[in-house]
Amino acid sequence: MPISSIVLVTGFLLILIGLWAMFVNKNIIRMIIGFSIIDTGIHMVMVALGYITGGTAPIFDDVVNVADASVIIVDPVPSALVLTAIVIGLGVTAIMLSYAVMIYNTKKSLSIDDCAEQKW
């Protein structure tokens, strides 16, 4: 099994685990943790899709020269995308956590069942 498939499958598993955590738990903090796990899974999938067989980091030095760069380095675009995604995920998590703090302060509970007015 090539290395990138392992990373890909692990990423998919993490997405499923995170989704499951978000579905099953009633506690808001645990749902946020589930979201973070999904986030990590997506990052792993993206990195795996950018892998080139036998590729190395896309940084030029004595070993990686420009001439045969297109066959010996991994795709730099998914790496850059994941970098962006990590930061955005952090921002989203921060916002979710501050909402959790707010909900706790108004309702004195972290259970999603106490937010019945949000139900549709």
Partner: peptide, 20 residues
């Protein structure tokens, strides 16, 4: 998706331009 996935052996498209 995972079953049909096969590793790429070469950069394509815009990545190739970035690399070269």
């Amino acid at each position: 998706i995972a079953g049909n996935y096969s590793e790429r052996t070469e950069l394509t498209g815009i990545s190739k331009h970035y690399a070269t």
